[in-house]
Amino acid sequence: MTDLSTAFATALRLITTLDAALVEIVTLSLRVSFGAVLVACVLGLPLGAALALARFPGRQALVVLGNALMGLPPVVAGLVVYLLLSRAGPLGEFGLLFTPSAMVIAQVVLITPIIAALARQVVEDLWASLGEQLRSLGAGPWRAVPTLLWEGRFSLVTVVLAGFGRSIAEVGAVIIVGGNIAHVTRTMTTAIALETSRGDLPLALGLGFVLMLLAVLVNGAAYWIRDFARARGG
């Protein structure tokens, strides 16, 4: 019990004094997650919208596959990216393994399906209610993609935040492809895993607090944006 309260106090001190090691780890975590979310949005939003509007054989199978990939186990994603980036792998020559870039790639693999699948649902619903009018005005499915993404912007913010939440909290994939190297690829989640096993509870707990705080901030932002949209007549 005293262990826990000591750890608690130390954790608070690390946060309030903006401890250098803590800040470094938090910064890297945010960089990796933001980078991954950005790439996943660029890929996933148009992909999801296209999947919502396109009609081609095999579309349903692709939709099911995309939905299934939402539940892709992070360690599996990590393993696949590891094999691709390792020295002997097809992308080995770029020397990306155990770098932040490798972590971004692994996270992109994890969250692009989430963003694409959720965006597909949003855009499909919008097309059901707006499709006739847009076609009447002369916008075919392809021209409608940007229109519908913009139309669904408030719902899509929640989609993007869902991707960010998955990314920032994820440990399995980034520890495999990043290697949890101090000052290079150590993120909040990998550090918590390591420090807990080493018995350095204060740092682990401090990082845990920051992680929780970020989760609250992210969800608060999502709630606020919805609220704002509703106030404006959404």
Binding site: Q133, L137, T147
Partner: peptide, 24 residues
Amino acid sequence: AMVFQQPVVLRRSVLANVDYALAL
């Protein structure tokens, strides 16, 4: 052109709704 029983407007300003159709 066609106008529907349930008028469909886009989530943007009144002016932008007209502009959108013209831009198409």
